[in-house]
Design a protein around this nucleic acid. Sequence first.
DNA 1: TTCGGTTGTTTCACACCATAAAACGCTGGT
DNA 2: ACCAGCGTTTTATGGTGTGAAACAACCGAA
Lengths: 254, 254
Amino acid sequence: MTDQQKSVMQDRGTVRAVERALDVLLCFRAKDELGLTEISKMIGLHKSTVHRLLATLETRGFVRREQSDRYRIGWSILELTSGIYRSGDFSTVVFPEMTALRDRIGETVSLYVRSGFERIRIQAVEGIHAVRRVANIGMRFPLHIGASGKVLLAFCNEPLLDRMESAGALPNNFNKAEFERQLEDIRKRGYAVTFEEREAGAAAVAAPIMNRQNQVSAALSVSGPVDRFSEANLERFIVACVDSANLIGKVFPF
Amino acid sequence: MTDQQKSVMQDRGTVRAVERALDVLLCFRAKDELGLTEISKMIGLHKSTVHRLLATLETRGFVRREQSDRYRIGWSILELTSGIYRSGDFSTVVFPEMTALRDRIGETVSLYVRSGFERIRIQAVEGIHAVRRVANIGMRFPLHIGASGKVLLAFCNEPLLDRMESAGALPNNFNKAEFERQLEDIRKRGYAVTFEEREAGAAAVAAPIMNRQNQVSAALSVSGPVDRFSEANLERFIVACVDSANLIGKVFPF
DNA sequence: TTCGGTTGTTTCACACCATAAAACGCTGGT
DNA sequence: ACCAGCGTTTTATGGTGTGAAACAACCGAA
């Protein structure tokens, strides 16, 4: 163990073994079936260490093994998610309003929150045109790409963009001045619109959900294929999305 | 630390600190907002220990704090769930078939797997009569109560009931001989029917989903108010449920 | 205001336990 | 038969997780 590692791990007030175990769990974001050696390479730990961590995770149901040598996320994770939306009355207010918005405009409605320098899609209601059900709830995306990311950045009180820059969370050729102008525009309008930014062929409208302290707590977005985001539709989408976001922000105690 | 504790923790091949951290996480099954001292009382650890564990969990996004002193489950949990159904093609086979079954009969369709001495509802499609959306996916129930629990027990190759008995997972006044007869009956019929067993006013039909090794891998259930489980309907429910379970078992590589 | 009783937070010395290397069995491919 | 890769087990070492105690900040009661 190097001196650098030593000095880093000194006095952080955290438990190293636990951090490593959680890192093992987070490996399953990338792939939903992993072998022991595979994991040990991903996080740079010794096989035996990972083995013990996995055994520990298994006793509590956080990982499971299907046949013999392949590990998967365990069912305990599900138990914890069932309570995640219970904050206040997520299921009686937010989800119904998202569904109503989807029914009004027909496109996919998503809800994002910020976590660190990323955003997480914490809930989604599929558009009526959706051919396949993509269950990518929980997925992370960068903050600086996509309508809802920009909304979360634009209405954030702290100088988040600066912190991202100094943390190296932005690409090298990132035009910060231009981006700041975009954010200013979003703040003025009260919503964001993007075309084929995060995904080719896709467009999105996003509006901020503000809490009572007038801080942005989430972003509500409407997204779908660009060809359905015509001039006429776009106006409808914007109005509907902003309205729903305002309504949720008024009612929901984020 | 007592000698008893020492001897217990010897040679388990697991990491104590990690087990404790996971126990902290599992506290959020009972309540979705907890204070530090509250947790420390629940699992019998010192405040400072829990504090360090929570700080560690927070760095990886497994818990979050809303205002200052209240802890909640973090968003990282959501990231892990998104991949949980990806085993094989859960979303393209199992979920559509469950939805189709619901559309055929109108009642709530649930999917359970066994985890230890309990069953977990890993997916559900609400019946058309459902007034409120109950998002209790991930919820645990005993194996010996309810139609799907009995199915999981009946078609389990190992002597699970014996192990439950010796582990004290059964109530004191449990009539094991009678229960064994019920299981034998379920094995003969190929499905289970219960009336007001787990919940007052509710009835359920459940059928096993068998994998290629002819082991039960899950239980599919149809449930609703008893008054809709009349003689005539019941027959339809049973046939439809068994059919869907067979279909899923054939296609899905559990 | 001044208490007492809560919180959550920080510090610190000591014993303990997590660690990684190495050796082990096992399986599958060549 | 061989090798390469896997997961598992064992072991000595010293790093590190631990809980008591002291601390700070809050709240309601007297």
